[in-house]
């Protein structure tokens, strides 16, 4: 799906905190239906890029356009973008005082103005899709990390977003729970969803990515539409060093 029309356009974006530069003049375009894995060392700016796309971080300079909407200071634009862009966090961030079902139905009812009946029907379908139908009436604290993250994915999907952002979705999970989450993400990728995934799961990235972006020091230093080629023989020395380290750790 590399020929879809551009859905996210990032142009010369900068973001820094004090003297630390998280994004240093980043420009990149994401297309409809594309699955892009963003990798790189901690603090290289991968998560900041993702969080800038739905304006959880305000970029200092440059332009970000999502589905034709320019992200500026207009709250209407920001909310419109967030409505079309789903996000899955490293730490799940399920609403702890609500049941699984309420977690999923809240935003569609409030933002999409769906009836409770419609929202619940969609929620139950999504729960079935992520294999958690039996847990609809439980609270997040009663679920394992992997289950919570699958609920978080269902919650984001309930808004019927055009793009899904995943910010290290398996990094906070016990190893035996990583696969159940990756399985759901793999299905989602197959269904044609546009996905931007910040991850340290190189095997997964190699398998599902249409494109791999390697970040270092706030910049994209290597980009490849051939993940097999990239993971076996990256061009940039920093990417080589990074992948070598990861392989040693694994």
């Amino acid at each position: 799906m590399r020929n879809g029309k551009p859905i996210i356009e990032v142009e010369n974006v900068r973001k820094s905190w004090g003297s630390f530069t998280a994004l240093n003049d980043v420009s990149v375009t994401f297309r409809e239906g594309e699955v892009v894995c963003i990798i790189g060392p901690s603090g290289s700016g991968k998560s900041t890029l993702l969080r800038s796309i739905n304006h959880l971080e305000k970029h200092d300079a440059g332009r970000i356009t999502v589905d034709g909407i320019l992200l500026d200071d207009d709250l209407k634009h920001i909310d419109a973008v967030r409505t079309e862009v789903g996000m899955v966090f490293q730490s799940f961030n399920l609403f702890s005082h609500m049941t699984v079902l309420d977690n999923i139905t809240l935003a569609p009812r409030r933002v999409r103005k769906w009836s409770r009946a419609k929202a619940e029907q969609v929620a139950l379908e999504l729960l079935e899709r992520v294999g958690l139908s039996a847990h609809a009436h439980k609270y997040p604290s009663q679920l394992s990390g992997g289950q919570q993250q699958r609920v978080a994915i269902a919650r984001a999907l309930a808004m019927q977003p055009k793009v899904m952002l995943f910010d290290e979705p398996t990094s906070a999970l016990d190893p035996e729970m990583v696969n159940e989450v990756l399985l759901v993400m793999r299905d989602l990728a197959k269904s044609g969803m546009t996905m931007l995934i910040v991850t340290h799961e190189m095997g997964f990235a190699r398998e599902v990515a249409d494109r791999v972006i390697f970040f270092d020091h706030g910049q994209i230093v290597e980009e490849s539409t051939d993940p097999q080629q990239f993971f076996s023989a990256p061009n940039h020395p920093r990417a080589q060093a990074f992948l070598k380290q990861i392989k040693h750790a694994a």
């Binding site: 739905n54 959880l56 789903g86 399920l94 702890s96 978080a152």
Partner: peptide, 10 residues
């Protein structure tokens, strides 16, 4: 919790 809510468009 706030970030999750805002990211859903609330």
């Amino acid at each position: 919790q706030v970030e999750a809510a805002r990211s859903l468009g609330l």
